[in-house]
Amino acid sequence: MARMIVEVMLKPEIHDPEGEAIASASRRLGFGQVVSVRQGKRFDVELAGPADEAAVTAITQLARELLSNPVIEEFTLHAG
């Protein structure tokens, strides 16, 4: 059984209030070296078969249509 990992991040130009809140909490807790934080989502997707080309195509489509919002987010796909 193969596994694929999809990581979804807001596009770099999109405002990330959650990341900003984490960055300011980091500094409040004494992690003064933290300048900025961008946060995102990671999906571990278990496959019934191998992570072949067809599976990659299918999971790419899944990432585009369900796991991410292509208007404001981008994703990367890699084997797990």
Binding site: I14, P17, E20, A21
Partner: peptide, 12 residues
Amino acid sequence: KRPSVQVGDPFG
């Protein structure tokens, strides 16, 4: 080309 989208921050 999609225009830039604004993301709001209700807690802000």
